[in-house]
């Protein structure tokens, strides 16, 4: 036996806590070994994967799914789930583009979109709190309705013709796209809210055991609404960055993105039952998935084969998480 049950039991919690990081390190080592050779002298280890160009590429791809995943983490932590994130992203994408094309001022547009996102999230949270319906059902209904609103709002047409009003989000600052910095900032604020505030502790309390939290005097409904509002705000931030990156809008934009966000949270160690996980883990989980996508393209793996492996990795991540708890 390479290791006994005792040593495993000692290491398992550590691996579980940092499972996203462990996966990321394995992936990066693998990429070093497998990715194509680069002639560029600036490339670390002569690998196309370890170039500044690829770092920028990864960070611009990471911003939107990363911020969505951070919002999703709050919702999952309280024991909920949000299936409407992709639809809301699409609607806010259309709203942002329409207002900017029609001459709206950039700061005002951004402020309104952030407000609308937060409000929509809060409304979903309130419906869940006061009707006692399952988050799955309420956000499923949200997913369908909000997508419909996006098609009605745009009259079923794409929106283009943005001048470079919000293109600055894509330009680099200190070598990293501003969208990347916004992701870092969102992650940091999210981590602080969860670890240092009363609201953060209440999020874990509600997700861990709602009844116990209720009897301990935690305002469960308000915490739920708060978590969904934060999620809505994150979706709005992501939608603005999405618009900047695509410099256009489509009512069908963001389809399926909610599942990517949930995947990132799960791979990063957040438990779908709620009460366990954090946004730093989610950040690493999202980073892992984008790094994997980029690696699969650089290594010329067929897209559909790549999809198959992603499923295996999700299963493995959840399995690892549950491992210690059964004992």
């Amino acid at each position: 036996m390479p290791f006994s049950a005792v040593t495993l039991r000692r290491w398992l919690p550590l691996i579980q806590k940092y499972q996203g990081l462990v996966g990321l390190v394995i992936l990066l080592a693998w990429a070093l070994w497998k990715s194509p050779h680069s002639e560029d002298s600036a490339a670390l280890f002569h690998s196309t994967y370890y170039t500044l160009a690829n770092l920028r590429n990864i960070l611009s791809q990471l911003a939107v799914p990363g911020i969505l995943a951070i919002g999703a983490t709050f919702v999952i932590l309280i024991g909920g789930i949000d299936l409407s994130a992709g639809s809301l992203l699409g609607l806010l994408n259309c709203i942002t583009a329409t207002w900017l094309v029609n001459g709206g001022s950039t700061p005002m547009t951004i402020a309104w979109v952030l407000f609308l996102g937060t409000l929509t999230g809060a409304i979903l949270g309130a419906i869940i709190s006061y009707t006692k319906l399952q988050p799955f059902v309420v956000t499923l209904a949200g997913m369908v309705s909000i997508r419909g609103i996006a098609f009605v709002y745009t009259n079923n047409a794409n929106i283009s013709g943005l001048h470079d009003q919000i293109a600055f989000f894509e330009s680099p600052w200190l070598g990293i796209p501003i969208a990347g910095w916004i992701l870092f900032a969102t992650t940091a604020v999210g981590a602080l809210v969860l670890s240092k505030t009363v609201f953060g502790r209440r999020v874990y309390a509600v997700g861990g055991n709602t009844d116990a939290a209720y009897y301990a005097g935690v305002p469960v409904s308000r915490v739920r609404i708060g978590a969904f509002a934060i999620n809505g705000l994150c979706i709005a931030i992501a939608a603005i960055l999405f618009t900047a990156r695509n410099s256009s809008a489509q009512p069908s934009a963001g389809m399926g993105y909610e599942l990517d966000a949930i995947t990132a949270a799960v791979v990063g160690g957040t438990a779908l039952v709620g009460g366990y996980g954090n946004v730093l883990g989610t950040f690493v989980g999202a980073l892992f998935i984008v790094c994997l996508n980029v690696f699969l393209i650089l290594d010329s793996v067929s897209y559909y084969v790549g999809q198959g492996w992603k499923g295996v990795i999700i299963l493995l991540a959840v399995y690892l998480q549950n491992l210690g708890r059964r004992v």
Partner: peptide, 12 residues
């Protein structure tokens, strides 16, 4: 959005 990611990764 996915296609933009694919193109930018190809450029690497």
């Amino acid at each position: 959005s996915k296609q933009i990611g694919v193109i930018e990764t190809f450029l690497v």
